[in-house]
Design a protein around this nucleic acid. Structure first.
Lengths: 238, 238
DNA sequence: CGAGAAATTGAGTCTCTTCAAACCCCGTGG
DNA sequence: CCACGGGGTTTGAAGAGACTCAATTTCTCG
């Protein structure tokens, strides 16, 4: 099953015909190098972008020069529907690892929306869930730092697992650096790092080379107070 | 001009016919007392709510017991489109002052959306802008506390002015308490208050009874680094 | 093997929080 | 007409969490 369908069907029921229509709307994939922007801040894209492989993020450079990461984007995510509705985008999308992406022209999105209202609903829903996620990050959910970091790790794992990119037995294909993580959490690199060290000390996670291994899922989940409901998966992890 | 139209037409061009259709969809107004919930957390409303008078907020009670205010809602705002898309709402809407509200049943929203795609687009846009605002709050825009508080005051004024509820010459109908403001900023009451005292010391604002008077708009704007672009008004304040 | 990037660790500082107390405004009842 | 009470506001002081600066170690890849 195509990764985009894997994502969309988990959001909402869509028919075979609709599934085929979305897939045929995809342009030829293209490669993006780590560190490059997929969508530039302030631009008015003419198409939306679908992640096929790699990790990207929506981010903003603040006046202070700091980078704030709004959400991570994984394979299957439609990272730029925002520009379809808002015309001018107010943040950038950047590749955190080498990525493969495809596009759907805005006019095709419009045509699909008109022909298949159910699809449009699915798109809208995807967008709101994405907004909901970045929301929950920004708020920190009223959690203390240790919980927040644990929560972020839980979310990353569950989202990757949904699209078949991760399983507990294997280390996460966690291509983000500590700095990326810190920018997403809104914490300093140093403090993020010290917090992760403490999760490591509790034997909840460990680092194997570049990858991150979850040693004790239940423990991590309980420290984080993680409840995947806010991700609005149709078939949540048990 | 009806306050809802004043808001919507500033978001997007909509025809006379569409305007009339929206207005006729409104149910009879009802009153909500200060402190009462307009929409309960976790509920699945069957209608969206339009603010006609007063101040409300979308908020969440965090596990720590703290209240986090996501956005303020002023007259003209459609405060509950969220539930139209997401079914189950993940936050509450509460009245910060005595309010007058009206409703539009979800099925009417659906019918309007089908008949007038342009209206649906306007709704969608409204929703994304609202999300964008709460976003910008949560991030704090990378601003320091003094700037953040000033920025919040600027936003409140501009939004109220748009719907004819405020002007510089008169004190703001600022019905929120310091605690409300603190919950919206994500700061403690004490610190919020001290920050406002410092704005007062700079002769940018002053308090007259319950109301708040802006003494020096340009000064406030400049301290805040306020740029109303993120509100996506069609006719921004000069 | 070496260079550059990323991660780790230590120390000092400052912001924001919490706790606590006093104050002020305003409506109510004697 | 004034004392009382309660919600909201203001102020002080002490402590905790997070930040920055800076040095060191580890990893990765050519």
């Amino acid at each position: 099953m195509h990764i985009l369908l894997r994502k969309l069907t988990n959001l909402h029921d869509i028919s075979e015909e609709e599934q085929a229509a979305v897939l045929s709307a995809l342009t030829r994939p293209r490669e993006v190098k780590r560190g490059d922007d997929i969508v530039a801040d302030g631009s008015t894209p003419k198409h939306t972008t679908v992640m096929l492989a790699g990790t990207a993020c929506r981010y903003k450079i603040l006046p202070s020069g700091k980078r704030h990461i709004l959400t991570f984007q994984y394979p299957g995510d439609m990272t730029d529907l925002y520009s379809y509705v808002m015309k001018k985008i107010d943040h950038a999308v950047g590749a955190l690892s080498d990525c493969t992406v495809a596009h759907i022209p805005h006019e095709t999105v419009a045509a699909l929306s008109e022909k298949y209202p159910n699809l449009q609903y699915t798109f809208w829903r995807d967008m709101m869930i994405d907004a909901s996620i970045s929301h929950s990050w920004a708020l920190g959910g009223g959690r203390k730092t240790l919980e927040r970091v644990a929560h972020m790790l839980c979310e990353i794992f569950v989202r990757l697992e949904l699209v078949g990119q991760a399983e507990l037995a294997r280390p996460l294909p966690f291509t983000a650096t500590r700095q990326d993580l810190a920018d997403a959490l809104g914490l300093s690199l140093v403090h993020t790092n010290k917090t992760m060290a403490s999760l490591k000390a509790k034997k909840l996670i460990t680092r194997t080379g570049t990858k991150l291994q979850i040693l004790n899922w239940d423990g991590l989940k309980s420290v984080a107070g993680f409840d995947p409901g806010y991700l609005h998966f149709k078939y949540p992890r048990s």
